[in-house]
Design a protein around this nucleic acid. Structure first.
Lengths: 195, 195
DNA sequence: AGAGTATCTGAACGCCCGTTCAATACAATC
DNA sequence: GATTGTATTGAACGGGCGTTCAGATACTCT
């Protein structure tokens, strides 16, 4: 056997990435073998090395692409207007985006420890870029007296952690719709930072 | 070689548990081998099986002991009084306990996926027991009109996620003392649930 | 001092790991 | 329809994995 009928790298490539993302999120990076990923796609393990130099690069590429996509999506969705409107938009955007990319979000928080120092620094830097966008909103609101947070850095971390928590319990078709969850969390965030 | 001078199970046992907890938290359950744990303690891998029937049991015992300790500690620390006092105590307790048991906390959130279904259910049940104690406080305050949360279950999850976030950034000897962090988070939680 | 028990070693078991590579079958191009 | 380049297989590499166990040493108790 050798090349398979219908084989094309622009089809196999995305399928490999999707399988890896799913399996890494489900079972953990270290617990998933290259052979498992390959089996999910329907190829042999050796074929994966047409698409990645090694396993760690596979992970770091997934994380980097996810963070890039997150930042681009927020920059496209972010409204103008006052700090209150921008904060509300951030809360709703963050919840929605995270639910739409649950596997990648989970990965980007749980598997950083499997990265070498320089890869770690890259992902950590992207995360800080994103967090800074929230902190800027809080700082703006603080400046106009609209918000009264004791510490904008901690408030940033607190809000993000709180919103990330949604991914741990939200189930599609459950008691609350996504919109309802957005409403409820916005209510709590709004009050938490209010002057 | 065989038994070593000074060897005692009530010394080796805790050392094995501590090494496993540290390594699992640092590198992930799947990424840590029994031989690594044994090396950290200074024994051969085979000796670990005097203390655990297998690797997964080692993990589940760590998680179960942690959750038990958490619940016992809160029940001992929980004050009487009104919902506001009890909520404040919870916020400060949770932050302090988590910082004192950072490895176990990390494990109990990251490594649940490495458990079989019945072990998973046990740990998940203990976590819910703990969360229910917070929810009871919120419900009490809601009843007296002291709090105004849109949904006590979501508020519970939101507060716990927010407090858990402290462990991801707090560093001993950093800009803020533990007490200062407690003050700041209590301020945000208090406002978030306020009527 | 001796018996009995607790603790640990060291070697072995079968199995799976990440990665490489020559061989080969298909796709794309002209 | 021949040629060139692409995608894949299948086998192999050295090595580490979780786990078991017979044998050996150290403690404990009488």
């Amino acid at each position: 056997m050798a090349r398979k009928p219908g084989s094309r790298s622009d089809i196999t490539g995305p399928r490999i990435r999707a399988a890896a993302r799913r399996l890494f999120a489900r079972h953990g990076f270290a617990a998933v073998s290259m052979r498992q990923i390959a089996a999910e796609v329907g190829v042999q393990a050796g074929a994966l090395y047409l698409y990645t130099p090694d396993k760690e690069t596979m992970l770091v590429d997934l994380l980097k692409d996810h963070m890039d996509e997150l930042i681009v999506a927020w920059d496209a969705a972010a409204p103008g207007g006052g700090p209150l409107e921008r904060l509300q938009a951030f809360v709703r955007f963050h919840i929605a985006f995270n639910l739409d990319h649950a596997d990648a979000v989970f990965l980007s928080y749980m598997e950083l420890r499997n990265l070498g120092p320089e890869n770690f620094a890259v992902i950590e830097g992207l995360r800080r870029d994103y967090e800074n966008r929230l902190e800027a909103i809080l700082t703006a609101g603080q400046g106009t007296g609209l918000f009264a947070v004791p510490d904008t850095k901690l408030a940033t971390m607190a809000i993000i952690a709180m919103l990330n928590g949604v991914n741990t319990w939200y189930r599609e078709g459950g008691r609350l719709s996504r919109a309802a969850v957005g409403d409820i969390y916005w209510d709590m965030v709004r009050k938490a930072v209010a002057a």
